[in-house]
Amino acid sequence: MTELTVRKTEAAFTRPDVDLTTQLGSVTFPNPVFTASGCAAAGQELDQFFDVSQLGGIVTKSIMLAPRSGRATPRMAETPSGMLNSIGLQGPGIDAFLDKDLAWLAQRGARAVVSIAGGSVEDYAKLAAKLRGAKGLAMIEVNISCPNVEDRGQVFACDPGASAAVVQAVKRSAPTGVPVFAKLSPDVTDITEIAKACVDAGADGLSLINTLLGLVIDTDTMRPALGGITGGLSGPAIRPVAVRAVWQVRQALPDIPILGMGGIRTGLDALEFVLAGANAVSVGTTVFGDPRAPIRVLDELAVALAERGFSSVAEAVGLAHRPPEIRLPEGPDPVGDTLGDPAHDDEEQL
């Protein structure tokens, strides 16, 4: 992918010549920057700010079988470098979603990663079946950070058995050739245990991470700030937790595709995830403050890769895990230097 994605109104920016394609399961995406579920709706609103078909993919808000009104307001509280949200999966239900939202994404030429959420294994299976033959569908992300109504509200993602059961059910009824990613919660003792259970159950890849459970108390009302009492923490505040999760899972499962996320604000943040082992990244909360963030992060990531001498994003995936004896070239200014890429000479840089 070397074409420009600058908007008419922007000063000309030529994205450096880096191969940004990334392989997630059986699908090759043109670049590794995606939106995050619940932070981009189904792409239409963001399309007012940039062409959403220029992203690797649009991860849509988790959709359930029936329409859902979500939780009581207030639904958000800003926190230092982050926010707490308690939306409660408000959405139109899968049928309206397919008719309107997915249809729009398909017509727009965007690659849709449809996130599904349910209250039982059967819900997930039904949702996956509904996606058979859906136009524009590139991938399925299974949001397993949901309470299992059949197990006293125990969250699927906190139990390897329940996680595996959901993944297996989705794989059985999902359309063939569409990768299924399980999205994991960081609120577990050992995330690699859940990751392995999902992969053993047939997951084609993993999305890491969902929000962390948090609570804010309003000192004026002296009550919890959110209508739902607890909420999910997101934004740069959680980035080190997310990078750690990607690192651990990459170490435990060297070959599994990973979609990394949690507090990505810049191209360098995205690069951190890639170096920790992510094959692609999602930009979530940052969009609320900067609607153009995903495309900006993509441009910045391309520059950051080129500056470090990479000719493709794939070369950088998991590089932070390399043994200590491999060192960066000596010199006063490692940035802008070449890193084992004879195709680049100094004149070509920047």
């Binding site: 709706a41 609103e45 307001t73 207030p74 639904r75 949200n85 609320f288």
Partner: peptide, 16 residues
């Protein structure tokens, strides 16, 4: 005037 996280319709915080 409802509390808003995004202001552009993508987050669902500002509902009534």
């Amino acid at each position: 005037e409802e509390s808003m996280a995004c202001g552009i319709g993508v987050c669902m915080t500002c509902v009534l």
